[in-house]
């Protein structure tokens, strides 16, 4: 935050520098959403969304229920494809490649874009097998490699120390918060670059929530993260940028401190101050 302010100031001082850093930003964009529309049957769920996401940043997506934020998130790994009668328009580019291209394999896309769901969904297998699952279905057979990857993923998800003695016990024996971190570890094991979190802490108690939030703060060093959350305060705490959605439209997307201290649109202000409706 501090550095952001400094950046802004130095940019104001030096126009040349601003041009350079703008160019840098240009190259650093991990995800670009261009004129994106989404329809369920005849209802339009997302309307002309344009958004750019920097690599290694956390984007919080907030908005009232039914504003399309979860639908939007599920577009990035095309999980909506499982529903029939949906239609896309426009582009979502990840590393400049449009994910709706005909020659793009959805399976490859999902390997690159991990997802963690609202309700933790460990498979009814052991902790170890849960993490190894993604590796195995992707054709990895080397047992040593799998074991090493499982350990690494659990460490990255800040779960290793808590469960290293019971790797082969059922994942269902873990607490809710641990299960959710297991799901994050499972997503990390296949080395995605983008991580989608769909209200990952909505079913957790405050301590487990705090742990997940700290984890997100650590994870952004390696991944680009999109997080949908009902909880505005959570978006404020964890995200670098916040996007506010309403009725399928992206109302405003800006640096998180800007959204929560001085949003540009009145409707955003009404929402973040709880004056909505």
């Amino acid at each position: 935050m501090n550095t952001m302010i400094k950046e802004k100031k130095s940019n104001q001082k030096n126009v040349e520098q601003e041009v350079i850093s703008a160019e840098l930003e240009e190259n650093n964009m991990k995800v670009r959403v261009e004129n994106f529309n989404f329809y369920y049957d005849t209802t339009q769920a997302l309307k002309d969304i344009n958004l750019e996401i920097k690599a290694n940043s956390v984007v919080g997506i907030i908005g009232p229920s039914g504003c399309g934020k979860s639908t939007f998130l599920r577009c990035f790994n095309r999980m909506n494809d499982t529903i029939s009668s949906i239609r896309y328009e426009g582009k979502i580019r990840i590393d400049e490649k449009n994910i709706f291209d005909d020659n793009l394999d959805v399976v490859d896309l999902r390997r690159n874009v991990g997802m963690v769901f609202q309700k933790s969904n460990p498979f009814p297998k052991s902790i170890f097998e849960n993490i190894a699952y993604g590796l195995k279905i992707n054709g990895i057979k080397d047992k040593n490699f799998i074991a090493q990857k499982v350990e690494e993923s659990l460490k990255n998800a800040a779960l290793w120390d808590e469960i290293k003695d019971r790797l082969h016990k059922s994942a269902f024996a873990l607490s809710g918060g641990q299960q959710q971190r297991l799901c994050i570890a499972r997503a990390l094991a296949i080395e995605p670059e983008v991580l989608l979190l769909d209200e990952p802490a909505s079913a957790l108690d405050p301590i487990a929530t705090a742990k997940i939030e700290e984890l997100i703060h650590e994870l952004k060093k390696k991944y680009t993260i999109l997080i949908v959350t009902h909880n505005m305060q959570q978006a404020a705490r964890v995200s670098d940028y916040t996007a506010f959605f309403m009725l399928g439209e992206l109302i405003e997307c800006d640096e998180t401190n800007k959204i929560f201290t001085n949003p540009s649109k009145k409707i955003t202000e009404d929402y973040v101050t709880g004056r909505f409706g």
Binding site: M1, I5, Q233, A236, R237, F260, T261
Partner: peptide, 15 residues
Amino acid sequence: IQIEEEIIDLLALFQ
């Protein structure tokens, strides 16, 4: 001014 902005951000973002 800088510290004040920083503090306002802390209040707004971390509650």
